[in-house]
Amino acid sequence: MGLIKDTKSNILTTTVEAAVNWGRKNSLWPMPFGTACCGIELMAVLASRSDIARFGAEAIRFSPRQSDLLLVAGRITIKMMPVLQRIYEQMPEPKWVISMGACASSGGVFDTYSVIQGVDQFIPVDVYVPGCPPRPEGLIDGLIKIQKLVEKDTFSNYSKRK
């Protein structure tokens, strides 16, 4: 009872899960895997006008070990795919993946021998952002969708870790 008396109204009841998810969703650390044109629009999202910092995701980390959101932006070729898989595996759990643009999602216009027809064949993808390349607004929308996924995440999911 002393506690309530001391803190007066400064109390909030929530679950640990909700508190953690709230923190997590507002401080996503993206790992940009920008290979082609989408990489340039990704830069535009980071730069002055669109400013991804408004959504707490400006801490771009080029080390997969420090990030929890993989942004696959651009076409992935047969030479690049093993690298992408390695990077995905190096990211710590929990992690989310955005497939940005037509090429990453489906191969786009590049129906050729060397372009992977959609990275989701080989790594899990959470959100697809359409466009060739998507506008910065599109990517921000994708990020908000990821935030909603993070919000719904439950700890019980983690117990399934292999």
């Binding site: 093993p82 898989q85 050729t112 060397s114 870790r161």
Partner: peptide, 19 residues
């Protein structure tokens, strides 16, 4: 043009936790 199956020849990485 579409190759001889090179672009399908990769292991599949499964989602580990939030299955």
């Amino acid at each position: 043009r579409q190759g001889r199956g090179e672009r399908k020849d990769f292991p599949i990485v499964e989602r580990m936790t939030r299955g």
